[in-house]
């Protein structure tokens, strides 16, 4: 129901962030995510950052997949 993709915040001016996905950049509002700062990855939905991507958790999950794949 809700497409949101990880985008990297490049800079923030006046609650509007310049975010980047695979070399494509766009403006996104960070009004729903007051803690966001440049360098963060955020989930972007319909032009708004809606959640921070927790990089540590992501790496944890990826590690789990790697272990699983290595075990076979």
């Amino acid at each position: 129901m809700c497409l949101a993709i990880p985008a990297k915040i490049i800079e923030i001016n006046n609650q509007m962030a310049n975010v980047e996905v695979g070399g494509v950049s766009r403006q996104a509002s960070v009004i729903l995510l007051p803690d966001a700062s440049p360098g963060n990855y955020v989930l972007m939905h319909a032009g708004f950052a809606i959640s921070l991507v927790d990089e540590e958790e992501a790496l944890e999950t990826i590690k789990l997949f790697e272990q699983l794949a290595a075990g076979q």
């Binding site: 990880p6 996905v21 695979g22 991507v53 699983l68 794949a69 075990g71």
Partner: peptide, 18 residues
Amino acid sequence: MSLPFLDEFRQGAHLRAL
């Protein structure tokens, strides 16, 4: 260039193991 936090979750080897 990769798409961080997307590509890592689409690895063929991981998917097959899962």
